[in-house]
Amino acid sequence: METRRTRATPLAPEERRAAIVAATRPLLIEHGSAVTTRLIAEAAGIAEGTIFRVFADKRELFHAVAEASVNPPGAQEQMARELAALPDLPSKLRHVIDRLAARLQESLLVLMAVRSALLNEPHQPASGPPTFLLEANKALVDNLTDLLFTPHAEELRLPPRKAALVLRSLTVGTWMPGLNRGQQPLSTDDVIDILLSGILRKDDH
């Protein structure tokens, strides 16, 4: 017996766009840039033509997935809610580091899968990373500064923004594929210890 495809539930264009992006992300991680619009449509529960009513082409869709992966919508509000429920700086650091590590690993898989699309980004600077990566990095440092470190400024030796830059550098350097090949990467505990205690021995006197 033939199964008839039901029509997709009507959604506003931005909602439909977000739903297609969400359905495409795991497919890109699994199949890379070879993923087809047919697979995407099946995962999103829509007809293939619906994709091209909200995206000009597959390259534009892949670009949107990459952007949403490195700078998810609502990330600032979500971080604020989650940190407000935690009692002190060490527990907040642990939560943020674990979340950043997971997001970074997923984002890098997506970025590698859509590399060719990103290289052809029309507004990409003549050299350097795509504009949306620069914007995502600024948003991350701003959020770490304002939401994580500024409420604990009196506990810090460094200004909150410098602390945010150190945390960003440690997490990116720790979980960037290829940088730690054959070596034991820093753990969450290691990153917290370095941030809060530094690398020098303390003088007992």
Rank of each mutant, 00 (worst) to 15 (best):
A68Y: 06
A68C: 10
V70M: 08
V70G: 02
N71S: 14
P72W: 10
P73N: 06
P73F: 11
G74E: 06
G74Q: 10
A75T: 04
Q76M: 10
Q76Y: 15
Q78P: 00
Q78T: 12
Q78C: 01
Q78H: 06
M79S: 09
M79C: 01
M79Q: 09
A80P: 00
A80E: 13
R81W: 06
R81V: 04
E82D: 15
E82G: 01
L83D: 05
L83V: 04
A84K: 14
A85Y: 06
P87N: 08
D88R: 05
D88Q: 03
L89G: 01
L89M: 05
S91P: 00
K92D: 03
K92G: 04
H95N: 09
H95M: 08
H95D: 02
V96G: 06
V96M: 15
V96D: 08
I97T: 05
I97C: 08
D98H: 12
D98T: 14
D98G: 06
L100P: 00
L100Q: 13
A101K: 11
A101S: 07
A102Q: 12
A102G: 03
R103I: 00
L104Q: 12
L104C: 07
E106H: 11
S107R: 04
S107N: 03
L108S: 06
L108M: 07
L109F: 10
V110N: 09
V110Q: 09
A113F: 08
A113M: 10
R115L: 04
R115C: 01
R115P: 00
S116Q: 15
A117K: 04
L118V: 01
L118T: 02
L119P: 01
L119A: 14
E121Q: 14
E121D: 15
E121L: 11
P122T: 04
